[in-house]
Amino acid sequence: MTLLAAEGLNKRFGGVQAAKDVSFALDAGEMLAIIGPNGAGKSTTFNMVGGQLRPDSGRVSLAGQDITGLPPREVCRMGVGRTFQVAQTFLSFTVIGNVQMALIAHHGQTRKLLPDAMAMHRDAALALLDRVGMAAQAERPVGELAYGDVKRVELAIALAAAPRLLLMDEPTAGMAPAERSALMALVAGIARGERIGVLFTEHDMDAVFAHADRILVLVRGEIIARGRPEEVRADAEVQRVYLGHSGTRAATRARRAAHG
């Protein structure tokens, strides 16, 4: 089932064509990676889907419903969650407090915050933290956590909105290699188990080749290749302009990991 469809997206900033006729589809439970060199149009495309940017032309639909140009808050209400390159959390709040705040916002209860906020949705928050492996650290301030654990908390916050689609901007940025692998494996398991579509941008080719179902490659705002990881890896143009030898090494490591 097609969950997300982008059709003919175009965006220009002055004399720069940041996105040119970008079209793709994403199914429920699928992981789709957008990759490319700096300035390729990844963030522009990502932000047109999430509502941060309105395309000059083209259409974005979620489960058949047109969401083109809707503001991010409205896009979120329609079932789209998001994580950011720099994790968006309240560092002075506890882990569980962060997730409770997200649940309160999701249920439209922000006017009832004090003094009862920390008693609201506690069981649901703990269940979300258990899903991301953070229940044991529920009472710790987020500011005390390792960055990989902060990213897991941010994932729980995104899941609090019960999204059908999850947008992840550089999910492994700032993380150690072992943390990157663990986080992406967690995301992939949740996505496939709960039929959540995941659209993500990522510079770590190990994460892309190991966990993406399909890959979209952008260069100078245009799609130059798309397909399953093995197809993209073998594409001569992708090798020439982006992946090079590093992509081959990443793909080899991903294959080895997949086969134990």
Rank of each mutant, 00 (worst) to 15 (best):
K151N: 02
Q85F: 14
V153A: 05
A146Q: 12
P171S: 00
L218M: 01
A251M: 07
V187E: 06
A33W: 06
A138S: 14
M168N: 01
V232Q: 13
T89A: 12
M175W: 06
T110M: 11
G58T: 09
R220H: 14
G8R: 11
V238E: 12
H121V: 00
A182G: 01
A33C: 06
A25S: 13
V238P: 15
L62D: 07
M1R: 09
D56L: 10
A210G: 06
E30Q: 11
K42S: 05
V238K: 11
A257D: 10
K20E: 03
M120G: 04
A5M: 03
A33G: 07
P229N: 02
Q88M: 10
V132N: 12
E74K: 13
K112M: 04
Y147F: 11
G189H: 15
L183V: 03
G193M: 10
A102C: 07
L9H: 08
D206P: 14
P72C: 04
G247M: 04
G221I: 02
Q52F: 14
L159M: 10
G189D: 15
L103M: 06
D21Q: 00
D27T: 00
L3P: 10
A102G: 13
I190L: 15
R77Q: 13
L186N: 12
Q88I: 01
P55C: 05
S181H: 14
R233H: 14
A28C: 04
L159N: 07
R249W: 09
T110Q: 10
D206G: 13
E74M: 09
L53Q: 09
R214Y: 11
V153F: 08
V153Q: 09
A161S: 15
L126V: 03
A19D: 00
F93C: 07
L218F: 05
N98M: 01
S181E: 14
D116P: 03
D149V: 01
E202I: 01
Q85L: 06
A254R: 03
K151R: 15
Q17D: 12
R59F: 08
T68W: 15
T2H: 05
A5I: 00
G260S: 11
M118Q: 13
